[in-house]
């Protein structure tokens, strides 16, 4: 099973990026093989629809669970329609969030918890 965690950098010790659509990277972890990969978020620099673009990328990569901070309604719609589970891990490091996910300690999210465009800086 593949898990994606929104990250500000390629360093697993950095805290989870609270913005889903606009984070810089996703840590994509193949839990069965403990294989880590950091992919750039295509939504990070997009003009609009960032969350949808980010979600589409994760769907394409076969991700089954997402750990992040806040998700807007459009991204949540894509992730939910794809059957991808959502979890929040505000303030924790990427590594720690992953560990807690494996131990079933993360809070699941059932829908959007951010306004549209909330991840755009300066708003």
């Amino acid at each position: 099973m593949k898990i994606a965690i929104s990250a500000p950098s390629k360093n697993p010790a950095d805290p989870v990026d609270s913005r889903f659509g606009r984070c810089s990277f996703f840590a994509v972890v193949d839990a069965d093989q403990e294989k880590w990969e950091f992919i750039p978020n295509p939504g990070a620099s997009s003009g609009g629809g960032a969350g949808i673009q980010a979600a589409q990328e994760l769907v394409k990569r076969g991700v089954r669970a997402v750990i992040t901070g806040r998700v807007g309604p459009n991204a949540a719609a894509v992730l939910q329609a794809a059957g991808i589970k959502l979890y929040t891990a505000g303030g924790k490091s990427v590594q720690e969030a992953y560990r807690q996910f494996l131990n079933n300690e993360l809070a699941p999210l059932t829908g959007a918890n951010a306004m549209p465009h909330a991840g755009i800086r300066g708003r």
Binding site: G43, G47, G49, Q56, V59, V78, A82
Partner: peptide, 11 residues
Amino acid sequence: AYHALAVLAGS
């Protein structure tokens, strides 16, 4: 270009 569509496995 506006990400107004998302394609999933069956929809």
